[in-house]
């Protein structure tokens, strides 16, 4: 596969919600290609369909119509369990509210995707892998901390580590800095840029223009369609490795 081969490719994708009588066309005919190694920020006003699009990209939901090729494979017709396997193997999620398991150590939180993976690992192997990934997000030494013992930024790093543990093709982040202050947001962006430098594709939703300039490409959504799609002219390089 060539390096510029599209990891993500959407063709005329629609998503329509039916709530009782009302029909909400959240995504209306989006066609989009994202190549390996890209770092995309999706912007747009509230209700413009960003999260809906992210759920489709994350294989958490299926499009009402249109085709979605992930890493060359058509995933629009897969069933629940097949989609779960795709998420486990090829995708990593970072959420606005972190979504770590409460009263569970950082290590065990990071191990979670491995427990549902194809490989059968021993407890020692699980721990070994989780430790390594935790170190890459700068949290070595916090292995046994529970989420309640970590700051928001640290929790988000644990969540990023969890997203990384299965070496995903794409990391999907819906407002990853929505709950963080600007300094911590910059730290998280620094980590994203580092990962992106290592070749991991990142797609992120954000409301903040300065966060969007950390990406390489900005997509603006409006009423379920892509309104503009252009590269970032003056990219902001966040400082990283701060703890």
């Amino acid at each position: 596969m060539a390096a510029n081969h599209a990891v993500v490719s959407l063709e005329e994708v629609h998503k329509t919600y039916h709530t009782g009588e009302v029909e909400v066309r959240a995504v209306r005919g989006v066609s989009l290609g994202i190549a390996r190694g890209e770092f995309v920020a999706i912007m747009g006003s509230s209700g413009s369909g960003k999260s809906t699009l992210m759920n489709l990209l994350g294989c958490l939901d299926r499009p009402t119509s249109g085709r979605y090729l992930l890493d060359g494979e058509d995933v629009s017709g897969l069933d629940r369990d097949q989609l779960a396997d795709i998420r486990n193997q090829k995708l990593g999620f970072v959420f606005q509210s972190f979504n770590l398991l409460p009263r569970t150590s950082a290590l065990e939180n990071i191990e979670l995707p491995l427990l549902y993976g194809r490989q059968r690992l021993t407890s020692a192997e699980l721990e070994e892998k989780a430790r390594k990934v935790l170190a890459t997000v700068g949290l070595a030494g916090r292995e046994d901390h529970h989420p309640s013992q970590l700051s928001g930024g640290q929790q988000q790093r644990v969540a990023i580590a969890r997203a990384l543990i299965n070496d995903p093709e794409v990391i999907l982040a819906d407002e990853p800095t929505g709950n963080l202050d600007s300094r911590t947001s910059a730290e998280i962006m620094g980590i994203f840029q580092q990962l992106n430098d290592r070749g991991i594709t990142i797609v992120m939703v954000t409301h903040e223009a300065d966060i969007a300039t950390c990406a390489k490409r900005n997509i603006l959504m409006r009423d379920g369609t892509v309104q503009s799609d252009e590269p970032v002219a003056h990219r902001f390089l966040a400082q990283s490795n701060q703890t």
Partner: peptide, 16 residues
């Protein structure tokens, strides 16, 4: 519920 959501998101099957 959220825990279950996270598990499903990271690849748990309904059966798991």
């Amino acid at each position: 519920t959220r825990e279950i959501g996270v598990r499903l998101a990271v690849g748990a099957h309904g059966r798991d």
